[in-house]
Design a protein around this nucleic acid. Structure first.
Length: 657
RNA sequence: GCCGGAGUAGCGUAGUGGUAGCGCAACCCCUUGGUAAGGGGUAGGUCGAGAGUUCAAUUCUCUCCUCCGGCACCA
C-alpha cells in the first residue's frame, strides 16, 4: 500500500498533491507565495482523519489518524469550538474568549452576565451532539491582524479583539470556520465537526479570570471531557469514580482520622486518635531516617514578634497570608507561618567552625498560614499544619552533596511507600517579574547551578519551571503520583543564600575569618496534613500494618472465650515493637453481634488482621487469622501470628497476601 | 479573596409557608453464632447561625459561618 498523499485545494478549483510529511514551506513554494495565505484545504483520499494545518515555517502537513496522540488533542480542541458554537447558538450575546484542549478534555471561557445552570449544560451538550451529527465542514482563512480586530469588534466579540491586539501588528491571524460559525484560532482542526465523535461530556461550570488575572473580570468556564470512543470515556469516568471513592475527606470520616469544626475555624483540622497514629508513625519514621543522616532535633515556639519576620523579610512578602498579630504588652506577636527564622536563630546562637558543618536542624513543627478561604480543601490545603521541616547549614563546597543527600532521603521514603512515579520540579525566578525576588543576580545563578548539578547527579527525572521560586532562592518541589495517578506536590526544598545576610549566619573558616553559610530548607514528607491526604488516597485507606490505626482486631465468637480473647489482646499489647512508637495496636470486639457482623465491621475499618477466636482456638491456645483481603490463613499459634505482624510493623513492609 | 452550588440526627439522605420522616450507626432485649449486615424495641433534630417578611419560616429575603467545584494564591 502506498503512503496516502495530501491534496490541497486551491481557491481557483485546482488541486495539488503532496506526499505525507511535506512541510508548509514546501507547499507554499509549490502553490506560489500569493496563494499561501489563501484558504487551504488539506485532504487525503479516502482517509477519515486528515486535518488543517497552517502553512507556517516548517510545520509538517501530515495525516493524523486516531492512533496518533495528536488526534486526541484535536478531538478536544474541536470539542471546545463546538461547545462555543452551541453556546452562542443557544445563548445569543454571549462572548467567546479562549477554549483550549486540556488533560482529559477541554474548556471554553465565556463572558455572559447570567450564570449557566446545570440544565443549561444539558441543553448545550445536546446542541453539541447535533452539531457533530451535522458534520459541518471546516474552513481556514488567513486575515491581516487589523481586519480581524475590526471584524471582531464589529460583531461584539471584544475579548477576541483584545486577544488579537496583543499579536504583533505585522502578523496575520488564522480564522477557522465550522459551517458559518468562526473563531480566531491557531489550529489545527479536523476537516469537519463530525470527526470529533460522540464520546464527550460536559462536566461542570466554574468561574475563571480573564487572562488568569484576579484583577480582571471573571468569566464562566464550561469544562468537558472528550475521548476517542465510548470505551475510553467510560474508563475515564470510572477513574473519576475511583478517585471519589478514595477521596481523603470521605475516608478520613469513615475511618475516624480527622475532623473539622466551624467553631475552631476553616482549615484547622482536629486529628482524631486513628489519624494521630499515622502522624506519629510518620514522625517516628522521619526521626529514624534523619538520625541516620545526621540531623539533630530542636523545638521552637509557635509564635514570635514581628521583629523576627521583618528581619527574615517574610513579613513584607507574606503579611496578607499570615494570621493577624496578637497585641501583647504593645508588641505584635505572630503565629508563625514557617520555622526557618527560628532555626536560623538556633544556628546563630553559637559560633561555628568550618569543621562542624554541615549542621542539620530538624523539627516536626506546627505552622499557621492564613490561606485564602477559597483555596482550603480537606487536609490538602489547610491553615494549621505540621511540617517535616529541617534546615541544613553548610559551606558552599558542601551544598551540592547535601542537596543530593536530601533528594536521596526523598527516594528512600518513596521506596518505602511504594510510590513508583515521581519527579522534581526546579523553580527559578520569573525574569519578567523580578520584584518578587531578592535582587542578587549572581547568587541566583550560583544557587541554580548547584541545584542543577545535584539534580543531574541523582538521575531522578526533573523539569524546570519559571516564576515559582521562593523569594530567597531557587526551589525544588517533589511531585509524586498515587497509585491511581493523582499528582501531589508533596515536598519543597530550597537553597537559600539570603539567610546568611539577614541573620548573619557565618562560619569561621580555616583562615580564621567569617564566611557565609548556605542554607538548605527541606521537608521531604511535606506536612502531616497533605502527606496523610496522599497516603489515604494511595492506599485507599487500607494502610500497611506499620501505619494502620488498628493493626489487628480480636473477634471472639462466643462469650465462653471472652477471657481467652482478652488474654490474647493483653499479650499482643505487651509486645515491644522496635519501630512502633507504642507497640502493637490491637483491639477487641466484645459486642454481642454475630461473628459475620464483627468481620464486616472490621473489614469496613480496613483493619489488616482479624483474629477470630472460638472454642477451638481457646482450647488450642491459637488464633484464626483472616486478612482484610478476605483470605483466611486458618488457625495458628499466637506466636506464629505475632512473629508475622511484628516483622511487618518493624520492617514497614507487609508480607504479600 | 472571586464566580457558581450546597448545609435537615454521629453518617448517608426524603420533604414542606402550618415547627420533620427513612436507612445505617448508638442504646436495650432476644439470639452464643465459624469468616462481609440475625430479629425486635428505644432514644436521638434550636432543619448551620443571626436578622427580616408573614398570623405562622426548616421552607421566602438579607448578612455571616462552614463545605463542595473551579479561578486566583501557595514562604
Amino acid at each position: 500500500m502506498s503512503a496516502p498523499s495530501i491534496s490541497v485545494s486551491l481557491p481557483d478549483g485546482k488541486t495539488l498533491s503532496f506526499p505525507q510529511g511535506v512541510t508548509g514551506t514546501e507547499v507554499a513554494a509549490a502553490i506560489g507565495p500569493g496563494l499561501a495565505r489563501a484558504a487551504l484545504a488539506a485532504e487525503v483520499d479516502g482517509h477519515q482523519w486528515d486535518l488543517f494545518r497552517p502553512i507556517a515555517k516548517d510545520a509538517r502537513l501530515r495525516i493524523i489518524t486516531r492512533k496518533d496522540p495528536e488526534a486526541l488533542e484535536l478531538i478536544r480542541h474541536d470539542s471546545a469550538h463546538v461547545l462555543a458554537m452551541a453556546v452562542q447558538d443557544l445563548f445569543p450575546g454571549t462572548q467567546v474568549t479562549i477554549g483550549p484542549a486540556i488533560e482529559n478534555g477541554f474548556y471554553y471561557d465565556f463572558a455572559r452576565d447570567q450564570p449557566f445552570t446545570q440544565d443549561d449544560l444539558a441543553r448545550i451538550e445536546a446542541r453539541m451532539r447535533e452539531i457533530v451529527e451535522a458534520d459541518l465542514p471546516t474552513r481556514r482563512e488567513v486575515w491581516p491582524r487589523d481586519k480581524a480586530i475590526a471584524h471582531f469588534e464589529e460583531i461584539g466579540e471584544h475579548y477576541k479583539a483584545e486577544l488579537i491586539r496583543s499579536i504583533p501588528a505585522d502578523e496575520d491571524v488564522s480564522i477557522y470556520f465550522h459551517g458559518d460559525w468562526h473563531d480566531l484560532c491557531r489550529g489545527p482542526h479536523f476537516v469537519s465537526t463530525g470527526k470529533i465523535g460522540q464520546a464527550f461530556r460536559l462536566t461542570n461550570v466554574a468561574g475563571a479570570y480573564w487572562r488568569g488575572d484576579s484583577n480582571n473580570a471573571q468569566l464562566q468556564r464550561i469544562y468537558g471531557t472528550a475521548w476517542r470512543d465510548e470505551k475510553e470515556l467510560d474508563a475515564y469516568l470510572q477513574r473519576v469514580a475511583e478517585q471519589e471513592k478514595r477521596d481523603h475527606r470521605r475516608i478520613g470520616k469513615e475511618l475516624g482520622l480527622f475532623t473539622f469544626s466551624p467553631d475552631v475555624g476553616a482549615g484547622l483540622p482536629l486529628w482524631m486518635p486513628n489519624g494521630m497514629v499515622i502522624r506519629q508513625e510518620l514522625e517516628f519514621l522521619a526521626l529514624q531516617e534523619e538520625r541516620r543522616d545526621g540531623y539533630r532535633r530542636v523545638a521552637t515556639p509557635h509564635i514570635a514578634k514581628d521583629a523576627l519576620y521583618l528581619r527574615s523579610r517574610h513579613l513584607p512578602y507574606y503579611k496578607e497570608d499570615m494570621y493577624s498579630p496578637l497585641d501583647i504588652d504593645g508588641e505584635n506577636y505572630y503565629l508563625r507561618p514557617m520555622n526557618c527564622p527560628h532555626h536560623h536563630l538556633i544556628y546563630g546562637a553559637t559560633r561555628h567552625s568550618y569543621r562542624e558543618l554541615p549542621i542539620r536542624i530538624a523539627e516536626y513543627a506546627q505552622d499557621y498560614r492564613y490561606e485564602a478561604s477559597g483555596g482550603l480543601s480537606g487536609l490538602m490545603r489547610v491553615r494549621g499544619f505540621c511540617q517535616n521541616d529541617a534546615h541544613i547549614y553548610c559551606r558552599y563546597d558542601q551544598a551540592k552533596d547535601e542537596f543530593i543527600r536530601v533528594m536521596q532521603l526523598h527516594a528512600r521514603y518513596y521506596d518505602l511507600m511504594e510510590i513508583q512515579e515521581y519527579y522534581m520540579r526546579l523553580s527559578l525566578p520569573d525574569t519578567a517579574n523580578l520584584e518578587k525576588y531578592v535582587d542578587e543576580p549572581e547568587k541566583w545563578l550560583a544557587a541554580a547551578e548547584i541545584i542543577r548539578a545535584a539534580m543531574k547527579e541523582t538521575g531522578y527525572p526533573y523539569i524546570e519551571a519559571k516564576g515559582e521560586a521562593a523569594f530567597y532562592g531557587p526551589k525544588v518541589d517533589f511531585m509524586i503520583k498515587s497509585v491511581i495517578g493523582t499528582e501531589y506536590a508533596i515536598s519543597t526544598n530550597q537553597l537559600d543564600f539570603l539567610a546568611t545576610q539577614t541573620f548573619g549566619l557565618n562560619y569561621i573558616g580555616e583562615d580564621g575569618k567569617d564566611h557565609p553559610v548556605y542554607v538548605i530548607h527541606r521537608a521531604p514528607l511535606g506536612s502531616h496534613e497533605r502527606f496523610t491526604a496522599f497516603l489515604i488516597e494511595h492506599y485507599a485507606g487500607a494502610f500497611p500494618v506499620w501505619l494502620a490505626p488498628i493493626q489487628a482486631r480480636i473477634i471472639p465468637i462466643t462469650d465462653r472465650v471472652s477471657d481467652y480473647a482478652l488474654s490474647v489482646r493483653d499479650r499482643l499489647l505487651a509486645l515491644p515493637v522496635v519501630n512502633g512508637t507504642a507497640g502493637l495496636r490491637v483491639d477487641i470486639d466484645l459486642s454481642s453481634e454475630r461473628m459475620q457482623r464483627k468481620i464486616r465491621d472490621a473489614q469496613t475499618m480496613k483493619i489488616p488482621y482479624m483474629l477470630v477466636i472460638g472454642d477451638k482456638e481457646a482450647e488450642a491456645g491459637s488464633v484464626a487469622v483472616r486478612l482484610r483481603s478476605g483470605r483466611d490463613l486458618g488457625a495458628m499459634p499466637l506466636e506464629k501470628f505475632t512473629d508475622r505482624i511484628r516483622r511487618e510493623a518493624e520492617s514497614r513492609h507487609d508480607v504479600a497476601d
